[in-house]
Simulated assay, not measured.
Amino acid sequence: MRYVGIESVEPGQFLGKTIYSGNGTVLLSAGVQLTVYMISTLNRIGVTMLYIQDPLYADVETEDILSEATKQGLIQEMSDAFEAVRSGKEWNTQLIGASVDHLLEDVMDNKELLVQLTDVRTADNAQYVHAMNVCLLSTVMGVNMGLNYQQVKELATGALLHDIGKNGMREGDELFPDSKSHHTWRGFEKLKNKREFGLLIAHVALQHHERVDGLGIPRGLTGDEIHLYAKIVAAADAYDRMIHPLKPSGRRLMPHEACEQMMAMSEKQLDHGVLVQFTRMVSIYPNGTAVRLSNKETGLVVRQHRGLPGRPVVRIVRGEAGHLDIKELDLAQETTVFIEAVLA
């Protein structure tokens, strides 16, 4: 598979990864042959990047930590919960807990994989995919930092629900970040009275926009005043928002650019210890990404190295059909060759 911009997709190509709607149902299944109408519709509903199948890279997989069933369940449960909050109804915390359990099972089964956030977003599913990604990133960091199972489950649940306070908001509610109408306070209020959840889960919603330098919101907490769960979720939230901006007009950073920007936030906005763990577990050049190397060759990232996210294996294809020269450069071994640029 190749990871490409929507503007590069042509009719007749085959979709590489399933696209989900906002309620967790399948919008387009992997393997479907794309038509002009499908491509136009994807562009209209906000899709910017997607995977397509390519015979030269048929063996290239995204190595997702989460199964398709887990993703579909998470998106569906988040959609149901958020819709209930919007309409002022009660929502099923047990189903949320079950979805988190499935996510934890997948994470524990795939601990050696780097996190690659490659699920296709639409205007309809963006907030749910964001919640899922923040939950996944936070969970993997928590596991790597040695949290026990109960702690990781609390962290994962808080991460999944960190933005639940945004639902049912009115225009102007966020004009005063220190007011109780801000989504951090609203999320805290919605979660603190859920007996199935511990109070720490509510504090993730309350504190995930705090900064270690004290310039965050809503309470201006500093350093150790911010709970570790909230520090972890803040890093995951910042990263996912950089590679998938909240507003369509926002600049979308590539994963390696986002990681560089996050490291510049160390001990200002984000906790340094959390960032160290983050950089060890996220794939900054996801499989299927086209890159230009420092030796001026171009190729596609096909495999990752755990612990060396900046040194993947790159496949280089030269020549024409019937006379192809294919080689792979393992950048963990080719220490004088570097990725110079990511090609859109």
Rank of each mutant, 00 (worst) to 15 (best):
M1F: 03
E7P: 05
E7M: 09
E7T: 14
S8Q: 14
E10C: 06
G16M: 06
T25D: 14
V26C: 08
L28Q: 13
L28C: 10
V32W: 00
T35V: 05
M38D: 15
T41C: 00
T41F: 01
T48E: 11
M49S: 11
M49N: 13
Q53V: 12
T62W: 00
T62K: 08
I65V: 11
S67F: 00
E68A: 15
L74M: 11
I75H: 10
M78P: 00
D80G: 00
S87M: 12
E90G: 11
T93F: 13
Q94A: 07
L95Q: 11
S99E: 03
D101H: 07
L103K: 03
N110H: 15
K111V: 02
E112A: 12
L113P: 12
L117Y: 04
D124G: 03
N125W: 01
N125T: 03
Y128F: 12
Y128Q: 10
M132E: 00
V134S: 01
L137D: 07
S138V: 01
S138D: 13
V140T: 04
M145Q: 13
M145G: 04
L147T: 09
V152R: 02
E154T: 08
A156S: 14
T157H: 05
L160C: 08
N167Y: 14
D173G: 07
E174K: 00
E174Y: 00
F176A: 01
P177L: 03
S179H: 10
S181D: 13
H182Q: 04
K192W: 04
E196A: 13
L199A: 14
L200I: 12
I201D: 02
L206I: 07
Q207E: 15
H209A: 01
R211W: 13
D213W: 05
G214D: 06
G214R: 06
I217T: 13
P218Q: 02
P218I: 04
T222V: 07
T222I: 05
G223Q: 14
D224A: 11
I226D: 11
I226E: 14
Y229G: 02
A230T: 01
A236I: 10
D237N: 07
D237K: 05
A238G: 01
Y239F: 15
H256S: 11
M263K: 08
L275G: 09
V276E: 06
T279H: 06
M281Y: 10
V282R: 04
I284W: 09
P286E: 04
N287V: 00
G288F: 01
T289N: 04
A290Y: 06
A290V: 02
L293I: 03
S294P: 00
T298W: 00
T298Q: 13
V302M: 12
R306V: 06
R318L: 09
G319A: 10
E320W: 08
K327Q: 15
L331D: 11
A332E: 04
T335N: 15
T336A: 15
V337F: 04
E340L: 02
A341L: 00
